[in-house]
Nucleic acid binder design. Structure first.
Lengths: 234, 234
DNA sequence: TAACGGAACGAACAGTGTTCGTTCAACGAA
DNA sequence: TTCGTTGAACGAACACTGTTCGTTCCGTTA
Protein backbone atom coordinates (compact mmCIF):
# COMPACT_ATOMS: atom_id res chain seq x y z
CA UNK A 1 0.00 0.00 0.00
CA UNK A 2 2.02 2.95 -1.23
CA UNK A 3 1.19 6.43 -0.15
CA UNK A 4 0.12 8.37 -3.26
CA UNK A 5 2.47 11.13 -4.40
CA UNK A 6 1.22 14.46 -3.15
CA UNK A 7 0.02 16.64 -6.00
CA UNK A 8 2.51 19.41 -5.17
CA UNK A 9 5.44 17.14 -6.03
CA UNK A 10 6.51 17.16 -9.71
CA UNK A 11 6.37 13.60 -11.01
CA UNK A 12 9.46 12.27 -12.73
CA UNK A 13 9.00 10.98 -16.24
CA UNK A 14 10.78 7.67 -15.82
CA UNK A 15 13.04 5.96 -13.38
CA UNK A 16 16.46 7.49 -13.45
CA UNK A 17 18.53 6.24 -16.28
CA UNK A 18 22.00 5.02 -15.65
CA UNK A 19 24.42 7.09 -17.69
CA UNK A 20 28.07 6.50 -18.24
CA UNK A 21 30.85 8.32 -19.95
CA UNK A 22 31.14 5.59 -22.53
CA UNK A 23 27.42 5.78 -23.34
CA UNK A 24 27.61 9.54 -23.74
CA UNK A 25 30.64 9.34 -25.98
CA UNK A 26 29.16 6.67 -28.19
CA UNK A 27 25.91 8.59 -28.46
CA UNK A 28 27.81 11.74 -29.35
CA UNK A 29 29.74 9.93 -32.05
CA UNK A 30 26.55 8.54 -33.54
CA UNK A 31 24.98 11.97 -33.69
CA UNK A 32 28.12 13.40 -35.24
CA UNK A 33 28.20 10.68 -37.88
CA UNK A 34 24.53 11.02 -38.76
CA UNK A 35 23.90 14.73 -38.37
CA UNK A 36 27.29 16.41 -38.41
CA UNK A 37 29.29 18.38 -35.93
CA UNK A 38 26.93 21.32 -35.92
CA UNK A 39 24.17 19.13 -34.56
CA UNK A 40 26.33 17.86 -31.73
CA UNK A 41 25.25 19.90 -28.75
CA UNK A 42 24.94 18.84 -25.13
CA UNK A 43 21.20 19.19 -25.50
CA UNK A 44 21.12 17.01 -28.56
CA UNK A 45 23.09 14.25 -26.82
CA UNK A 46 20.93 14.54 -23.73
CA UNK A 47 17.80 14.41 -25.81
CA UNK A 48 18.98 11.25 -27.49
CA UNK A 49 19.50 9.72 -24.07
CA UNK A 50 16.15 10.84 -22.79
CA UNK A 51 17.53 13.23 -20.19
CA UNK A 52 18.63 16.85 -19.80
CA UNK A 53 21.98 18.42 -20.63
CA UNK A 54 22.92 18.98 -17.00
CA UNK A 55 23.06 15.24 -16.42
CA UNK A 56 25.99 14.87 -18.78
CA UNK A 57 28.22 16.94 -16.52
CA UNK A 58 28.41 14.16 -13.96
CA UNK A 59 30.42 12.21 -16.54
CA UNK A 60 32.23 14.72 -18.73
CA UNK A 61 33.75 17.93 -17.51
CA UNK A 62 32.47 20.01 -20.40
CA UNK A 63 31.78 19.87 -24.08
CA UNK A 64 35.44 20.19 -24.93
CA UNK A 65 36.19 17.04 -23.00
CA UNK A 66 33.34 15.25 -24.68
CA UNK A 67 34.76 16.14 -28.09
CA UNK A 68 38.20 14.90 -27.07
CA UNK A 69 36.73 11.64 -25.86
CA UNK A 70 34.81 11.22 -29.10
CA UNK A 71 37.96 11.78 -31.11
CA UNK A 72 39.92 9.29 -29.09
CA UNK A 73 37.11 6.81 -29.54
CA UNK A 74 37.55 7.14 -33.28
CA UNK A 75 41.33 6.85 -33.06
CA UNK A 76 40.62 3.58 -31.25
CA UNK A 77 39.49 2.17 -34.59
CA UNK A 78 42.97 2.53 -36.00
CA UNK A 79 44.73 -0.81 -36.17
CA UNK A 80 48.46 -0.59 -35.65
CA UNK A 81 51.10 -2.96 -36.98
CA UNK A 82 54.09 -4.53 -35.31
CA UNK A 83 57.17 -2.67 -36.50
CA UNK A 84 59.21 -4.46 -39.19
CA UNK A 85 62.64 -2.89 -39.87
CA UNK A 86 62.64 -4.09 -43.46
CA UNK A 87 59.36 -2.38 -44.26
CA UNK A 88 59.40 0.70 -42.13
CA UNK A 89 58.64 3.03 -45.02
CA UNK A 90 55.74 1.00 -46.29
CA UNK A 91 54.46 0.57 -42.78
CA UNK A 92 54.55 4.29 -42.12
CA UNK A 93 52.72 4.92 -45.34
CA UNK A 94 50.11 2.28 -44.61
CA UNK A 95 49.57 3.58 -41.11
CA UNK A 96 49.08 7.11 -42.39
CA UNK A 97 46.66 5.92 -45.01
CA UNK A 98 44.80 3.81 -42.51
CA UNK A 99 44.49 6.77 -40.18
CA UNK A 100 43.39 8.95 -43.08
CA UNK A 101 40.65 6.48 -43.92
CA UNK A 102 39.43 5.99 -40.38
CA UNK A 103 39.18 9.73 -39.84
CA UNK A 104 37.48 10.08 -43.20
CA UNK A 105 34.91 7.44 -42.37
CA UNK A 106 33.62 9.66 -39.56
CA UNK A 107 33.72 12.66 -41.75
CA UNK A 108 33.12 15.42 -39.27
CA UNK A 109 35.58 13.99 -36.80
CA UNK A 110 38.25 15.74 -38.85
CA UNK A 111 36.99 18.95 -37.31
CA UNK A 112 38.08 17.62 -33.93
CA UNK A 113 41.36 16.22 -35.15
CA UNK A 114 43.43 19.30 -34.45
CA UNK A 115 41.58 20.27 -31.33
CA UNK A 116 43.19 17.94 -28.90
CA UNK A 117 46.64 17.13 -27.73
CA UNK A 118 47.22 13.49 -28.67
CA UNK A 119 47.33 12.12 -25.16
CA UNK A 120 44.21 10.00 -25.10
CA UNK A 121 44.76 6.29 -24.55
CA UNK A 122 44.19 5.45 -28.18
CA UNK A 123 46.24 8.35 -29.46
CA UNK A 124 49.10 7.13 -27.32
CA UNK A 125 48.77 3.68 -28.82
CA UNK A 126 48.95 5.09 -32.34
CA UNK A 127 51.86 7.36 -31.41
CA UNK A 128 53.71 4.33 -30.04
CA UNK A 129 53.20 2.55 -33.32
CA UNK A 130 54.47 5.48 -35.38
CA UNK A 131 57.51 5.85 -33.19
CA UNK A 132 58.38 2.20 -33.01
CA UNK A 133 58.21 1.90 -36.81
CA UNK A 134 60.55 4.83 -37.30
CA UNK A 135 62.99 3.62 -34.66
CA UNK A 136 62.93 0.15 -36.19
CA UNK A 137 63.74 1.79 -39.52
CA UNK A 138 66.93 3.20 -38.07
CA UNK A 139 65.92 6.82 -37.68
CA UNK A 140 67.68 8.62 -34.85
CA UNK A 141 65.37 9.11 -31.84
CA UNK A 142 65.17 12.87 -32.27
CA UNK A 143 64.25 12.51 -35.92
CA UNK A 144 61.70 9.83 -35.08
CA UNK A 145 59.98 11.82 -32.36
CA UNK A 146 59.83 14.99 -34.40
CA UNK A 147 58.78 12.92 -37.39
CA UNK A 148 55.91 11.53 -35.32
CA UNK A 149 54.91 15.03 -34.33
CA UNK A 150 54.88 16.29 -37.89
CA UNK A 151 53.28 13.24 -39.51
CA UNK A 152 50.51 13.33 -36.95
CA UNK A 153 50.01 17.01 -37.65
CA UNK A 154 49.90 16.35 -41.37
CA UNK A 155 47.30 13.61 -41.23
CA UNK A 156 45.06 15.42 -38.80
CA UNK A 157 45.35 18.70 -40.71
CA UNK A 158 44.33 16.99 -43.92
CA UNK A 159 41.38 15.44 -42.09
CA UNK A 160 40.45 18.83 -40.74
CA UNK A 161 40.52 20.43 -44.15
CA UNK A 162 38.49 17.62 -45.70
CA UNK A 163 35.86 18.01 -43.03
CA UNK A 164 35.56 21.69 -43.87
CA UNK A 165 34.80 20.86 -47.45
CA UNK A 166 32.25 18.37 -46.30
CA UNK A 167 30.59 20.93 -44.08
CA UNK A 168 30.27 23.28 -46.99
CA UNK A 169 28.78 20.56 -49.11
CA UNK A 170 26.28 19.64 -46.43
CA UNK A 171 25.34 23.27 -45.94
CA UNK A 172 24.71 23.59 -49.67
CA UNK A 173 22.05 20.90 -49.61
CA UNK A 174 23.53 19.41 -52.75
CA UNK A 175 24.80 15.91 -53.36
CA UNK A 176 28.53 15.53 -53.07
CA UNK A 177 29.19 15.25 -56.80
CA UNK A 178 26.96 18.20 -57.70
CA UNK A 179 28.49 20.34 -55.02
CA UNK A 180 32.06 19.42 -56.00
CA UNK A 181 31.39 20.28 -59.63
CA UNK A 182 29.92 23.59 -58.67
CA UNK A 183 32.45 24.52 -56.03
CA UNK A 184 35.56 23.55 -57.92
CA UNK A 185 34.06 25.03 -61.06
CA UNK A 186 33.90 28.31 -59.22
CA UNK A 187 37.47 28.01 -58.03
CA UNK A 188 38.59 27.26 -61.58
CA UNK A 189 36.71 30.26 -62.90
CA UNK A 190 38.20 32.45 -60.21
CA UNK A 191 41.72 31.34 -61.03
CA UNK A 192 41.13 31.75 -64.76
CA UNK A 193 39.90 35.28 -64.31
CA UNK A 194 42.77 36.53 -62.21
CA UNK A 195 44.76 39.21 -64.07
CA UNK A 196 47.38 37.31 -66.04
CA UNK A 197 49.96 40.07 -65.71
CA UNK A 198 49.96 39.84 -61.92
CA UNK A 199 49.28 36.13 -61.60
CA UNK A 200 51.08 34.49 -64.53
CA UNK A 201 51.89 31.26 -62.70
CA UNK A 202 48.38 30.67 -61.38
CA UNK A 203 46.57 31.62 -64.58
CA UNK A 204 49.05 29.62 -66.66
CA UNK A 205 48.55 26.43 -64.65
CA UNK A 206 44.86 26.31 -63.86
CA UNK A 207 44.50 22.73 -65.05
CA UNK A 208 47.38 21.56 -62.87
CA UNK A 209 45.99 23.55 -59.95
CA UNK A 210 42.62 21.84 -60.22
CA UNK A 211 43.85 18.34 -60.95
CA UNK A 212 43.85 15.65 -58.30
CA UNK A 213 41.28 14.82 -55.66
CA UNK A 214 41.84 14.69 -51.93
CA UNK A 215 43.37 11.21 -52.01
CA UNK A 216 45.93 12.20 -54.63
CA UNK A 217 46.96 15.29 -52.76
CA UNK A 218 47.24 13.42 -49.49
CA UNK A 219 49.36 10.80 -51.22
CA UNK A 220 51.62 13.45 -52.72
CA UNK A 221 52.18 15.26 -49.46
CA UNK A 222 52.79 12.01 -47.65
CA UNK A 223 55.37 11.04 -50.23
CA UNK A 224 57.05 14.41 -49.74
CA UNK A 225 57.22 13.84 -46.01
CA UNK A 226 58.45 10.26 -46.23
CA UNK A 227 61.17 11.10 -48.73
CA UNK A 228 62.23 13.95 -46.52
CA UNK A 229 62.20 11.71 -43.47
CA UNK A 230 64.32 9.15 -45.27
CA UNK A 231 66.94 11.81 -45.96
CA UNK A 232 67.52 12.11 -42.21
CA UNK A 233 68.57 8.51 -41.91
CA UNK A 234 72.12 7.94 -40.86
CA UNK B 1 15.02 77.24 -35.35
CA UNK B 2 14.58 73.46 -35.41
CA UNK B 3 11.34 71.84 -34.49
CA UNK B 4 11.96 69.79 -31.33
CA UNK B 5 11.77 66.00 -31.70
CA UNK B 6 8.38 64.74 -30.57
CA UNK B 7 8.59 62.72 -27.34
CA UNK B 8 7.05 59.59 -28.90
CA UNK B 9 10.01 59.21 -31.24
CA UNK B 10 12.98 57.27 -29.83
CA UNK B 11 15.97 59.53 -30.02
CA UNK B 12 19.02 58.20 -31.76
CA UNK B 13 22.22 58.22 -29.77
CA UNK B 14 24.37 59.85 -32.39
CA UNK B 15 24.27 60.65 -36.04
CA UNK B 16 24.50 57.56 -38.13
CA UNK B 17 28.02 56.37 -38.42
CA UNK B 18 29.42 55.45 -41.77
CA UNK B 19 30.54 51.85 -41.68
CA UNK B 20 32.53 49.99 -44.26
CA UNK B 21 33.70 46.49 -44.71
CA UNK B 22 37.29 47.56 -44.28
CA UNK B 23 36.51 49.31 -40.99
CA UNK B 24 34.68 46.26 -39.69
CA UNK B 25 37.51 43.94 -40.67
CA UNK B 26 40.18 46.11 -39.12
CA UNK B 27 38.16 46.46 -35.94
CA UNK B 28 37.62 42.71 -35.80
CA UNK B 29 41.34 42.11 -36.20
CA UNK B 30 42.15 44.51 -33.41
CA UNK B 31 39.74 42.80 -31.06
CA UNK B 32 41.14 39.41 -32.01
CA UNK B 33 44.68 40.57 -31.38
CA UNK B 34 43.88 42.17 -28.05
CA UNK B 35 41.23 39.88 -26.62
CA UNK B 36 41.44 36.63 -28.57
CA UNK B 37 39.16 34.80 -30.88
CA UNK B 38 36.63 33.94 -28.20
CA UNK B 39 35.95 37.61 -27.66
CA UNK B 40 35.36 38.23 -31.33
CA UNK B 41 31.58 38.26 -31.66
CA UNK B 42 29.42 40.37 -33.90
CA UNK B 43 28.21 42.16 -30.80
CA UNK B 44 31.73 42.89 -29.65
CA UNK B 45 32.70 44.36 -33.01
CA UNK B 46 29.52 46.37 -33.15
CA UNK B 47 30.07 47.62 -29.64
CA UNK B 48 33.54 48.77 -30.53
CA UNK B 49 32.06 50.70 -33.44
CA UNK B 50 29.31 52.21 -31.36
CA UNK B 51 26.49 50.47 -33.15
CA UNK B 52 24.48 47.24 -33.05
CA UNK B 53 25.33 43.85 -34.50
CA UNK B 54 22.64 44.02 -37.16
CA UNK B 55 24.41 46.96 -38.82
CA UNK B 56 27.37 44.79 -39.71
CA UNK B 57 25.27 42.65 -42.03
CA UNK B 58 25.04 45.45 -44.56
CA UNK B 59 28.76 44.91 -45.17
CA UNK B 60 29.55 41.28 -44.41
CA UNK B 61 27.32 38.37 -45.25
CA UNK B 62 27.81 36.63 -41.92
CA UNK B 63 30.38 35.95 -39.29
CA UNK B 64 32.07 33.34 -41.38
CA UNK B 65 32.72 35.88 -44.10
CA UNK B 66 34.03 38.35 -41.54
CA UNK B 67 36.53 35.78 -40.29
CA UNK B 68 37.66 35.04 -43.84
CA UNK B 69 38.16 38.72 -44.52
CA UNK B 70 40.13 39.12 -41.31
CA UNK B 71 42.38 36.25 -42.26
CA UNK B 72 42.99 37.62 -45.71
CA UNK B 73 43.81 40.97 -44.14
CA UNK B 74 46.54 39.28 -42.14
CA UNK B 75 47.83 37.37 -45.16
CA UNK B 76 48.13 40.80 -46.74
CA UNK B 77 51.05 41.47 -44.39
CA UNK B 78 53.07 38.72 -46.01
CA UNK B 79 55.73 40.17 -48.29
CA UNK B 80 56.51 37.99 -51.27
CA UNK B 81 59.77 37.83 -53.19
CA UNK B 82 60.45 37.81 -56.89
CA UNK B 83 61.31 34.24 -57.86
CA UNK B 84 65.03 33.54 -58.36
CA UNK B 85 65.81 30.16 -59.98
CA UNK B 86 69.17 29.90 -58.25
CA UNK B 87 67.64 30.27 -54.79
CA UNK B 88 64.28 28.62 -55.09
CA UNK B 89 64.80 26.39 -52.09
CA UNK B 90 65.93 29.18 -49.84
CA UNK B 91 63.15 31.36 -51.12
CA UNK B 92 60.54 28.74 -50.39
CA UNK B 93 61.93 28.29 -46.92
CA UNK B 94 62.01 32.03 -46.27
CA UNK B 95 58.49 32.48 -47.53
CA UNK B 96 57.21 29.71 -45.28
CA UNK B 97 59.03 31.17 -42.32
CA UNK B 98 57.76 34.63 -43.10
CA UNK B 99 54.22 33.33 -43.31
CA UNK B 100 54.73 31.41 -40.07
CA UNK B 101 55.85 34.58 -38.35
CA UNK B 102 53.09 36.79 -39.71
CA UNK B 103 50.44 34.31 -38.64
CA UNK B 104 52.15 33.96 -35.28
CA UNK B 105 52.15 37.68 -34.71
CA UNK B 106 48.35 37.65 -34.72
CA UNK B 107 48.27 34.64 -32.54
CA UNK B 108 44.63 33.71 -32.68
CA UNK B 109 44.49 34.16 -36.42
CA UNK B 110 45.91 30.66 -36.62
CA UNK B 111 42.49 29.47 -35.55
CA UNK B 112 41.13 30.91 -38.81
CA UNK B 113 43.96 29.66 -40.95
CA UNK B 114 42.37 26.38 -41.91
CA UNK B 115 38.87 27.71 -42.09
CA UNK B 116 38.97 29.27 -45.49
CA UNK B 117 39.76 28.28 -49.00
CA UNK B 118 42.76 30.38 -50.00
CA UNK B 119 41.03 32.45 -52.63
CA UNK B 120 41.12 35.87 -51.04
CA UNK B 121 43.06 38.53 -52.94
CA UNK B 122 46.01 38.32 -50.62
CA UNK B 123 46.00 34.55 -50.44
CA UNK B 124 46.09 34.49 -54.24
CA UNK B 125 49.09 36.78 -54.20
CA UNK B 126 50.95 34.50 -51.78
CA UNK B 127 49.93 31.41 -53.77
CA UNK B 128 51.30 33.04 -56.91
CA UNK B 129 54.60 33.63 -55.16
CA UNK B 130 54.86 30.04 -53.94
CA UNK B 131 54.06 28.70 -57.37
CA UNK B 132 56.36 30.99 -59.28
CA UNK B 133 59.27 30.11 -57.01
CA UNK B 134 58.75 26.40 -57.51
CA UNK B 135 58.32 26.73 -61.25
CA UNK B 136 61.44 28.88 -61.41
CA UNK B 137 63.23 26.11 -59.52
CA UNK B 138 62.42 23.67 -62.30
CA UNK B 139 59.71 21.68 -60.62
CA UNK B 140 57.17 20.20 -63.03
CA UNK B 141 53.87 22.13 -62.95
CA UNK B 142 51.95 19.30 -61.34
CA UNK B 143 54.54 18.94 -58.61
CA UNK B 144 54.61 22.69 -58.07
CA UNK B 145 50.84 23.06 -57.79
CA UNK B 146 50.47 20.12 -55.45
CA UNK B 147 53.50 21.33 -53.56
CA UNK B 148 51.79 24.69 -53.12
CA UNK B 149 48.69 22.96 -51.84
CA UNK B 150 50.59 20.91 -49.32
CA UNK B 151 53.00 23.60 -48.14
CA UNK B 152 50.11 25.95 -47.58
CA UNK B 153 48.32 23.25 -45.62
CA UNK B 154 51.42 22.63 -43.55
CA UNK B 155 52.01 26.24 -42.58
CA UNK B 156 48.38 26.95 -41.79
CA UNK B 157 48.00 23.72 -39.83
CA UNK B 158 51.01 24.57 -37.72
CA UNK B 159 49.55 28.02 -37.10
CA UNK B 160 46.27 26.45 -36.12
CA UNK B 161 47.88 24.11 -33.66
CA UNK B 162 49.96 26.89 -32.13
CA UNK B 163 46.87 28.98 -31.64
CA UNK B 164 45.24 26.14 -29.75
CA UNK B 165 48.12 26.05 -27.33
CA UNK B 166 47.84 29.77 -26.92
CA UNK B 167 44.14 29.53 -26.19
CA UNK B 168 44.82 27.00 -23.46
CA UNK B 169 47.46 29.26 -21.99
CA UNK B 170 45.16 32.23 -22.02
CA UNK B 171 42.36 30.21 -20.44
CA UNK B 172 44.72 29.13 -17.69
CA UNK B 173 45.34 32.71 -16.60
CA UNK B 174 49.03 31.97 -16.31
CA UNK B 175 51.95 33.67 -18.00
CA UNK B 176 53.23 31.89 -21.06
CA UNK B 177 56.36 30.53 -19.41
CA UNK B 178 54.55 29.31 -16.30
CA UNK B 179 51.84 27.70 -18.34
CA UNK B 180 54.31 25.99 -20.69
CA UNK B 181 56.28 24.57 -17.76
CA UNK B 182 53.14 23.25 -16.18
CA UNK B 183 51.51 21.94 -19.32
CA UNK B 184 54.55 20.26 -20.81
CA UNK B 185 55.49 19.01 -17.38
CA UNK B 186 52.17 17.24 -17.29
CA UNK B 187 52.69 15.76 -20.73
CA UNK B 188 56.13 14.55 -19.70
CA UNK B 189 54.73 12.96 -16.58
CA UNK B 190 51.97 11.33 -18.59
CA UNK B 191 54.46 9.86 -21.05
CA UNK B 192 56.77 8.69 -18.28
CA UNK B 193 53.96 6.91 -16.52
CA UNK B 194 52.67 4.96 -19.48
CA UNK B 195 53.18 1.22 -18.99
CA UNK B 196 56.64 0.47 -20.37
CA UNK B 197 55.68 -2.97 -21.59
CA UNK B 198 53.00 -1.58 -23.92
CA UNK B 199 54.68 1.70 -24.77
CA UNK B 200 58.42 0.95 -24.89
CA UNK B 201 59.21 3.48 -27.61
CA UNK B 202 57.39 6.37 -25.97
CA UNK B 203 58.58 5.69 -22.43
CA UNK B 204 62.12 5.09 -23.67
CA UNK B 205 62.31 8.41 -25.50
CA UNK B 206 60.53 10.91 -23.29
CA UNK B 207 63.35 13.42 -23.47
CA UNK B 208 63.40 13.32 -27.26
CA UNK B 209 59.61 13.56 -27.34
CA UNK B 210 59.64 16.70 -25.22
CA UNK B 211 62.61 18.41 -26.82
CA UNK B 212 62.23 21.26 -29.24
CA UNK B 213 59.89 24.22 -29.17
CA UNK B 214 57.40 25.18 -31.85
CA UNK B 215 60.00 26.86 -34.04
CA UNK B 216 62.23 23.80 -34.06
CA UNK B 217 59.40 21.50 -34.95
CA UNK B 218 58.19 23.77 -37.69
CA UNK B 219 61.72 23.95 -39.08
CA UNK B 220 62.06 20.20 -39.01
CA UNK B 221 58.80 19.55 -40.78
CA UNK B 222 59.57 22.19 -43.35
CA UNK B 223 62.90 20.61 -44.03
CA UNK B 224 61.17 17.26 -44.50
CA UNK B 225 58.80 18.79 -47.01
CA UNK B 226 61.47 20.69 -48.93
CA UNK B 227 63.77 17.70 -49.21
CA UNK B 228 60.84 15.65 -50.39
CA UNK B 229 59.88 18.30 -52.88
CA UNK B 230 63.42 18.43 -54.20
CA UNK B 231 63.30 14.70 -54.88
CA UNK B 232 60.54 15.35 -57.42
CA UNK B 233 62.73 17.54 -59.57
CA UNK B 234 63.49 16.28 -63.00
C1' DT C 1 17.16 3.71 10.38
C1' DA C 2 19.70 7.80 9.31
C1' DA C 3 23.41 10.12 7.13
C1' DC C 4 26.32 10.77 3.37
C1' DG C 5 27.92 11.25 -1.27
C1' DG C 6 27.48 11.17 -5.97
C1' DA C 7 24.44 10.77 -9.96
C1' DA C 8 20.54 12.73 -12.22
C1' DC C 9 17.65 16.56 -13.01
C1' DG C 10 15.07 21.19 -14.01
C1' DA C 11 15.24 25.99 -14.11
C1' DA C 12 17.68 29.72 -15.26
C1' DC C 13 21.56 32.55 -16.66
C1' DA C 14 24.44 34.94 -19.95
C1' DG C 15 25.75 34.80 -24.22
C1' DT C 16 25.65 33.77 -29.47
C1' DG C 17 24.43 34.67 -34.71
C1' DT C 18 20.90 36.17 -37.28
C1' DT C 19 16.38 37.89 -39.05
C1' DC C 20 12.63 41.04 -39.47
C1' DG C 21 10.60 45.30 -39.64
C1' DT C 22 11.55 50.23 -39.10
C1' DT C 23 14.02 54.50 -39.60
C1' DC C 24 17.23 57.41 -41.81
C1' DA C 25 19.63 59.74 -45.38
C1' DA C 26 21.28 60.35 -49.92
C1' DC C 27 20.12 60.66 -54.58
C1' DG C 28 17.62 61.22 -58.84
C1' DA C 29 13.55 62.43 -61.37
C1' DA C 30 9.66 65.23 -62.08
C1' DT D 1 11.55 72.05 -54.42
C1' DT D 2 9.27 67.82 -53.45
C1' DC D 3 8.60 63.08 -53.68
C1' DG D 4 9.82 58.38 -54.32
C1' DT D 5 13.35 54.94 -54.21
C1' DT D 6 17.08 52.48 -52.41
C1' DG D 7 20.39 50.87 -49.46
C1' DA D 8 22.61 51.62 -45.03
C1' DA D 9 21.87 51.64 -40.18
C1' DC D 10 19.29 50.20 -36.34
C1' DG D 11 16.49 47.90 -32.35
C1' DA D 12 13.84 44.15 -30.87
C1' DA D 13 13.36 39.59 -30.82
C1' DC D 14 14.07 34.76 -31.96
C1' DA D 15 16.11 30.25 -31.40
C1' DC D 16 19.80 28.33 -29.82
C1' DT D 17 24.16 27.42 -27.03
C1' DG D 18 27.14 25.77 -22.78
C1' DT D 19 27.01 25.86 -18.17
C1' DT D 20 25.81 26.60 -13.21
C1' DC D 21 23.06 26.27 -9.17
C1' DG D 22 20.04 24.19 -6.19
C1' DT D 23 17.18 20.12 -5.58
C1' DT D 24 15.90 15.32 -5.71
C1' DC D 25 16.95 10.61 -5.90
C1' DC D 26 19.23 6.43 -4.78
C1' DG D 27 22.69 3.32 -3.22
C1' DT D 28 25.87 2.39 0.46
C1' DT D 29 27.60 2.36 5.00
C1' DA D 30 27.66 2.85 9.90
Amino acid sequence: MDVPTPPWRTPRKIARQQLSQDLIVRTGLRILDEEGLEALSMRRVAQELGTGPASLYAHVANKEELLELIFDEVVGEIEVPIADPARWRDQLKELCWHMYRVLGSHADVGRLALASIPVGPNAARVSEAFLSIMLAGGLPPQVATWGLDRLYLYVTADAYESSLFLAKQRASGLELDSWADQFFGQVRTYLSQLPADRFPSLTGNVDAMMRGDGDKRFEFGLEMLLRGLDSFRD
